[in-house]
Computed example of a mutant assay.
Amino acid sequence: MKAAVLEEFGKPLSVCEVPAPELGTGEVLVDVVAAGVLPYAAEVFRGERNYLLTLPVVPGAGAVGRVRATGPDATRLEPGDWVLCDPTIRSRDDALTPDITLQGLSARGDGGVFLQRRFGHGSYAEQVLVPTENAIPLGPVEPADAGRWAALTVCLVPYGGLLAADLRPGETVLVSGATGNFGGAAVAVALAMGAACVVAPGRNETALADLERRFGARVRTVRLTGDDDTERLRRAAPGPIDVVLDLLPPSAGTAPVRAAAMTVREYGRVVLMGGVGMLGGDDLALPYPWLMRNNITLRGQWLAPRTANASLIALARAGLLDLDQFAVTEFGLADITAALDHAAGTTTRFALTVVRP
């Protein structure tokens, strides 16, 4: 089969013939129809993010495709079914603290690297092999719309954070990093889940205006200045802020994270799932007395639980999460370099770069 291969960090991906995956028990082989390209993918492949990734590798985290074959333990999936391929792969021999690899992109610790021996290769290929539980039924999909359904992989990240925050209908959410790729998706997902209001801070006035245009009065934007941001964020909300979700990238400092976190009400919840500090710099400092006396729940969250896939698909099927918000630009596998450049150069929210092998 044809695949894009990363031979070494800093070297362009090469498109070549590689052996097709061999199906085993507990696995599903999927014909890839559309695979999203992350805006920072090129940074990973250049080695700038220091992600754990065993080379050579077929990159690509997540895909939409059709089942080619299943193992003997699959009781419902059948060849031809449309599925969403969840790239978060967990070991099966420790239910409490499983090792995790993010297929085609990264891993957590030595156990995650070990998982890459079987599930390292990702979706920039004609076929991808995933554990059975990572092939989630999508229902009927028009082939031309497969790229838009690939936006679920982006939405799944903030959805995992909002589930971790136990977001309830009618609550107010502050999305720190709302003008970014995952942050913009978080605004859409929070509203789809029933948030009454989303407070969206940022420095890019054009991006903030775009969020207001897309979502109307349920989104309250605030331009960050570094001067009394916490109080101005509080005033922007129609009432107490129940949940803060941080999705800021590694390039951001800790000051906007702290300003956002400290807006949350007494008994409020703060979820951290961005990249701040991953490239060095100051650690996040939150006041112990404030956390304790206000009964604040502070939680870190990496990615989303496996069960989140089905309910996120249901939100999209119901029309609550509008995937038509995403402007999709598609490339063939042979144009993978152009796809990476396009993704890296896209600064607007709800813009998705897709490879169609």
Score class of each variant (00 low, 15 high):
residue 1 M to R: 12
residue 2 K to Y: 12
residue 3 A to I: 12
residue 6 L to N: 05
residue 7 E to N: 13
residue 9 F to K: 09
residue 9 F to T: 01
residue 10 G to N: 08
residue 11 K to P: 13
residue 11 K to I: 15
residue 12 P to N: 12
residue 14 S to V: 15
residue 21 P to A: 15
residue 23 L to N: 09
residue 25 T to D: 15
residue 27 E to Q: 14
residue 36 G to L: 13
residue 36 G to D: 11
residue 38 L to Y: 14
residue 42 A to N: 12
residue 42 A to H: 12
residue 46 R to Y: 06
residue 47 G to L: 04
residue 50 N to P: 09
residue 51 Y to H: 10
residue 51 Y to C: 10
residue 54 T to D: 13
residue 56 P to A: 12
residue 56 P to H: 07
residue 56 P to K: 06
residue 59 P to C: 07
residue 60 G to H: 08
residue 61 A to M: 14
residue 63 A to M: 13
residue 63 A to Y: 07
residue 65 G to V: 04
residue 69 A to G: 05
residue 71 G to N: 09
residue 72 P to N: 03
residue 78 E to H: 02
residue 80 G to T: 01
residue 85 C to G: 07
residue 88 T to M: 10
residue 89 I to R: 08
residue 90 R to N: 12
residue 94 D to C: 07
residue 97 T to H: 11
residue 116 Q to K: 09
residue 118 R to V: 11
residue 118 R to W: 14
residue 120 G to P: 10
residue 121 H to V: 14
residue 121 H to L: 13
residue 124 Y to S: 13
residue 128 V to W: 06
residue 136 I to T: 11
residue 136 I to R: 13
residue 139 G to M: 09
residue 140 P to A: 15
residue 143 P to K: 09
residue 146 A to N: 07
residue 146 A to W: 09
residue 148 R to N: 08
residue 149 W to T: 00
residue 149 W to H: 08
residue 154 V to I: 15
residue 158 P to T: 04
residue 160 G to F: 06
residue 161 G to R: 10
residue 167 L to V: 04
residue 169 P to F: 05
residue 171 E to F: 07
residue 171 E to M: 09
residue 174 L to E: 01
residue 176 S to I: 01
residue 179 T to Q: 02
residue 180 G to C: 08
residue 180 G to A: 10
residue 184 G to F: 02
residue 192 A to T: 04
residue 194 G to H: 03
residue 195 A to D: 02
residue 199 V to M: 03
residue 201 P to I: 01
residue 204 N to C: 09
residue 207 A to K: 12
residue 209 A to H: 04
residue 210 D to P: 12
residue 213 R to M: 15
residue 225 T to H: 03
residue 226 G to A: 06
residue 231 E to S: 14
residue 234 R to H: 05
residue 235 R to I: 04
residue 242 D to M: 04
residue 243 V to R: 06
residue 248 L to T: 13
residue 249 P to T: 11
residue 253 G to D: 01
residue 258 R to T: 10
residue 259 A to H: 01
residue 262 M to P: 01
residue 266 E to G: 07
residue 267 Y to T: 07
residue 268 G to F: 00
residue 270 V to F: 11
residue 270 V to Q: 06
residue 272 L to D: 00
residue 272 L to V: 02
residue 278 M to K: 08
residue 278 M to V: 08
residue 280 G to K: 05
residue 283 D to C: 13
residue 285 A to K: 10
residue 296 I to S: 03
residue 296 I to M: 06
residue 299 R to T: 11
residue 301 Q to N: 10
residue 301 Q to Y: 03
residue 303 L to H: 12
residue 308 A to L: 08
residue 313 I to K: 02
residue 315 L to I: 00
residue 315 L to A: 07
residue 316 A to S: 11
residue 318 A to L: 04
residue 320 L to F: 11
residue 322 D to R: 02
residue 323 L to D: 00
residue 328 V to N: 03
residue 335 D to E: 15
residue 336 I to Y: 01
residue 343 A to P: 07
residue 346 T to C: 15
residue 348 T to L: 14
residue 348 T to P: 11
residue 350 F to P: 00
residue 352 L to I: 03
residue 354 V to D: 10
